[in-house]
Design a protein around this nucleic acid. Structure first.
Lengths: 252, 252
DNA sequence: ACAATTAATTGATCTGCGTCAGGGCAGCGC
DNA sequence: GCGCTGCCCTGACGCAGATCAATTAATTGT
């Protein structure tokens, strides 16, 4: 563990953006299309870069923001994996999502004006912080920024309702794995083999299953030669079959 | 059935905005705070009213917008109840939500740039149509409009994940009834007694239950004196007990 | 007013997944 | 070395709710 940035990441490419190469990271970020526009007002662009604050590293277990904190900023994950979760009155956890490099968190805090969940680093995490008042002000001057914000928000509505259906454990796991694969691929990582930074318990909680069920289903999928599992490392062997399983969840 | 506008609505006040009294309706609408601002730039306000188009009546079963149609506008329900739903490949329905007067629909269409669901009138429905390009342009000139759009979008993310948890049938129904009651109350209707414009099947589908289960749970809640049910008319008798049941879903 | 649909209720049975219980294995401090 | 802790896996069992089936309202059309 000499290199904190690359600690705990093994297979395929490491999902950590090169800290020394902002441009390369930004091109895979949810805000990339506005942070790195081709031929757009240079002054406004400079303003956008001005209001971005690079923060990190967070270590596994650290909180990027905390439930109840007043809303002030949204964040783009720059490296590592972030879990968002709520704790109910009895202290039971509800995992809302996992966020890979290039993805935004904190959008659901705008309305209640405070963060409705914790954002927990699952490994070594770096983020970009966007002050929201500043971003909103900029959005008034740069319609592209406004559009992108609208799109990001709208996209999250769709994501949130994906798991609401009553799907079987197999469908959920298949959709989960394929979803991760596609998101890794969109950020330039391998879509076939990747590491699950989250525990079985987190996956189960996110998919509204028992962790025992996650174990059993992963084993079943492996027995059926759809995937290969080794601890937290996963390899997708039969994408078509997985897609067929997940069809109802993903394909609509 | 001589009066189409008020047909099929019985108990308490009818959830139909007075067509002749825009001001009164607008004050209860999701956009009310920007459509009816106190002491705001009159010119910009006029522009907002200019781009609002009143549409209706739709009859039960009519579509306000259709899955796959290119996204062009968002809508505020002005009267009646609208159901949003997806149909998967096999033609099975997935109910995404029910929308009462004053609530916005179509926000989840911004990102995919086409409507990801159908919006179906459950009874006689009137809507306000907001052209989205025009609204976005106006938002650049009126930061209040932009803010309100951000808030509406963000709020929908939270709503979408409410039902994602693994809750019991009783919890779901209690939360559903209380949620409806509060939304009716926020629009000036009775929070104690109201009519379910949607069928048991729609409720069941929305809550990811079987319609038989909805029947049974409603009966059980009635036996326990928490509610009174008569067909599609519901009266909440013991709000505290319902809140206690729904605590895990609503209260976080 | 009538049959013809469609929706709602109720009971009986089935089942997927949660719960409980037990065991293995790696990392870590002592 | 040792016990401790956290994570993962596996089997046995029970239950909430789905499914199947049959009856009884409500709607709708003629």
């Amino acid at each position: 563990m000499k290199d904190p940035v690359h600690a705990g990441v093994r297979p395929a490419q490491s999902p950590i953006a090169d800290d020394g190469d902002d441009l390369r990271f930004c091109s895979t970020c949810a805000f990339g299309s506005v942070c790195l526009p081709a031929g757009v007002d240079k002054t406004a662009l400079r303003e956008l870069h001005m209001l971005v604050e690079h923060i990190g590293p967070y270590r596994a277990g650290d909180l990027v923001f905390r439930n109840g904190e007043p809303f002030a900023a949204i964040f783009a994950v720059r490296g590592g994996v972030v879990k968002t979760r709520q704790l109910d009155d009895d202290g039971r956890e509800q995992v809302l999502g996992f966020h890979l490099p290039g993805e935004m968190i904190g959008l659901n805090a705008i309305h209640p004006a405070k963060y409705p969940c914790d954002a927990v680093a699952l490994d070594t995490v770096f983020v970009c912080r966007f002050s929201f008042p500043a971003l909103a002000t900029l959005a008034v001057k740069m319609p592209d920024v406004q559009q992108q914000l609208f799109r990001l928000l709208s996209a999250d509505i769709g994501k949130a309702s994906l798991l609401a259906g009553d799907y079987s454990a197999d469908e959920r796991l298949a959709a989960f794995l394929l979803g991760l694969a596609d998101r890794f691929a969109a950020r330039g990582f391998s879509a076939k083999a990747f590491r699950l930074e989250m525990s079985r318990g987190d996956i189960a909680n996110y998919l509204r299953l028992a962790s025992e069920t996650v174990s059993r289903v992963l084993r079943r999928l492996q027995d059926q030669k759809l995937i290969r599992v080794d601890g937290r490392d996963v390899e997708l062997l039969d994408r078509a079959a997985l897609l067929d399983l997940a069809r109802n969840i993903l394909h609509q």
